[in-house]
Nucleic acid binder design. Structure first.
Lengths: 239, 239
DNA sequence: GCGCCTCTTTGCGCCCGCGCAAACTGCCCG
DNA sequence: CGGGCAGTTTGCGCGGGCGCAAAGAGGCGC
């Protein structure tokens, strides 16, 4: 976690500051701090007082919530350009989950006080934050419905499609999820066990829909996954 | 849905406008409209363009999301003083769920444009909204973890406790949830079936923990429910 | 290059909770 | 007052997916 001088240009990529003029952006930069986080490190922990708003510049961060009995759930993965920990700062003041770097990261952060000042001076920032948090709320609500009403296979399909959209990299013959993702991780995203995930992926692999590796998944036939996720009439594999 | 002249005083109870001075509150009132909604009516529907921010003054509103195959999930119940539909207005522009009045209601609303102007002029409003939406995000994330990792019985216990906290009315010998709530509704809140909910409530009723009726639940021994929800060593019923 | 360690795969048996079906009950409305 | 209907209860059987257990397979450090 080395503090560095922040680069003004990186803010252009953040939706939080969309619509600000150059002067406001400069002001924003002055109140920010950059940090490097190496793979495996913790950025904040569940239960810590939420004193910092974070934005990820580069790398990948996993947000994990732990229940009373130690059961874990992957809330989401954060990619470059996304905020994290922001909602906690303005709601409750305690981080509701852990943030772990799953790759070497560059992140930028503001103190709660500094962000408060920014928002009061530039309502656009607050409104952008509302937009971001609102979309996230909708996404989580949709996942809640999925977990509540859909079968495991479909939930896994949805999770992979979501990951591909968010963190997919085109490779020959498919889309690869470009950060280390274990079966256990997928299980914790979909509310099942790593055994079940492994079985499902094995089945899909036999049908040529995905290709798995160690902490790695490549989607070979995305439309087939969509068919599973949406329960469209399934294109039968050549019997 | 009769439009009425809004009453300035009702805004005092809304967290969205906490911290505003009298002049700002007056301005807020001018851009608002009040409506009466009778039990059973729909306030907005999933998929509709989100043109209005709502606040409930009196009554009870059920927010229900419907999946592709018609599976329904109760996202939350809204009580007096709470906002609804706000996140959608600033994120995506489409309501992600239906809002149904489960009792006769009085609600107040602002157009998206008017609310945008209010937020730009009074950043506190935007920040309050961020607080509200952020808390709701945290709550839904917690429910997501629950549904993903906990057994049905515990989820039902959590749901009842949450309802009691939000909409409980003390009566002799317990806490009654003060709006019509069917077994089906509880099932849709917890991701199970009405049969399973009915069995669980019957079991609890036999132990004197709850008392059920038609679309009605009274919690007789809240601490026993907490014990189930948290998996504390269970106070055995007299064998 | 060898061995270890983590991640993954796969088999097997069981149980929670769903699906179906039918009976029951209290309200509402005619 | 009597039917009908929505909501609820309960029985029964099955099956998806979990739990446990053990073997296989890469990758990494030494």
């Amino acid at each position: 976690m080395t503090p560095l001088a922040p680069d003004p240009d990186v803010l252009r990529g953040l939706r939080l500051f969309a619509g600000l003029d150059a002067a406001a952006l400069a002001e924003t930069v002055r109140s920010a701090q950059t940090q490097r986080v190496e793979k495996g490190a913790t950025i904040f922990s569940q239960g810590d007082p939420a004193t910092l708003c974070h934005a990820l510049i580069d790398g990948r961060v996993k947000i994990v919530q732990t229940g009373a009995d130690g059961q874990q759930m992957v809330v989401r993965y954060i990619g470059p350009g996304e905020m994290f920990g922001t909602a906690a700062v303005f709601a409750g003041g305690v981080y509701p989950a852990d943030a772990l770097a799953v790759a070497d990261c560059v992140a930028i952060h503001w103190s709660a006080a500094a962000m408060g000042v920014l928002m009061e001076r530039h309502p656009r920032v607050a409104m952008n934050a509302l937009d971001i948090v609102g979309r996230r709320l909708q996404e989580v609500q949709t996942r809640l419905r999925e977990v509540s009403t859909e079968r495991v296979e479909r939930r896994v399909a949805h999770a992979l499609l979501r990951l591909a959209r968010q963190a997919g990299r085109r490779v020959e013959g498919g889309v690869e999820i470009d950060f280390p993702l274990s079966r256990q991780d997928i299980a914790e995203m979909t509310g099942t066990t790593l055994h079940t995930v492994s079985r499902i992926l094995s089945g899909w692999e036999a049908q040529g829909i995905v290709e798995g590796g160690r902490q790695q998944v490549t989607i070979r036939r995305p439309h087939a996954l969509v068919a599973i996720a949406e329960d469209l009439p399934r294109p039968l594999p050549p019997a």
